[in-house]
């Protein structure tokens, strides 16, 4: 992993977690007994990902210092759990469930066709660096397949009863939003079902 890229230097100097999110960190730590600070590692990693959808080595070290953990221990948490990233990907991760119940309702074909239309393979990011398509495990929406979630620095949103056309429309909106700033993309959620 390349940790000495220019971007991480910027983050280190401009937004160490503890100065930018002092109030949020305090609220997170207050949830757990004072002697159990380590419990806050997962929420702090989500906080860190708010910046750029991945956590660099410096931030892991900072989280470790806040919680009294080694950087290696923090990195092991990042490695174990699939919603944390230690290297940059697309701004938006479209995570399509292809587990058995979804596959029985066409999710595999949906994944293949969507990737073909975008000219990428599952796991890859579009050339503009915005969209990463991932094949993921069950997302607890088996009755509304094909479905996916969009993970970005702002959190996660579900999109159910999807068609490829629908998904492409959403991707266009995400691209517009990325170039013009935040907007509203709720309208696409599950609307092929209505």
């Amino acid at each position: 992993m390349n940790v000495s890229d220019g971007a991480s230097e910027v983050t280190k100097s401009l937004s160490p977690l503890s100065s930018k999110y002092a109030r949020e960190i305090e609220a997170i730590l207050a949830k757990y007994p004072p002697e159990q600070r380590r419990s806050a590692v997962m929420p702090l990693l989500y906080l860190a990902q708010k910046e750029r959808m991945y956590v660099d080595r410096e931030t892991m070290q900072e989280i470790g210092e806040i919680l009294g953990m080694s950087t290696t221990d923090v990195a092991s948490i990042v490695g174990f759990y699939s919603l944390y990233y230690d290297e940059p990907g697309g701004k938006y991760h479209i995570q399509i469930c292809t587990d058995l119940p979804c596959a029985l309702r066409g999710a595999e074909d949906f994944l293949v066709e969507l990737c073909e239309r975008l000219g990428i393979l599952p796991g890859e990011t579009t050339k503009d660096g915005l969209i990463t398509i991932e094949e993921v495990m069950c997302l607890a929406a088996c009755d509304n397949a094909p479905m996916f979630q969009v993970q970005s620095s702002q959190g996660l949103e579900y999109y159910e009863n999807q068609t490829v056309e629908n998904a492409l429309k959403l991707i266009e909106e995400l691209r517009t939003m990325a170039t013009r700033g935040p907007g509203h993309y709720e309208s696409i959620r599950s609307d092929s079902d209505e």
């Binding site: 997962m42 990693l45 948490i77 174990f80 699939s82 919603l83």
Partner: peptide, 19 residues
């Protein structure tokens, strides 16, 4: 949690809660 089926198992869940 952060994407790990195993955390539905109650002792793995507790480990995960402990960071």
């Amino acid at each position: 949690g952060a994407g790990a089926y195993i955390c539905g198992e109650e002792t793995a869940l507790l480990e995960s809660m402990e960071g």
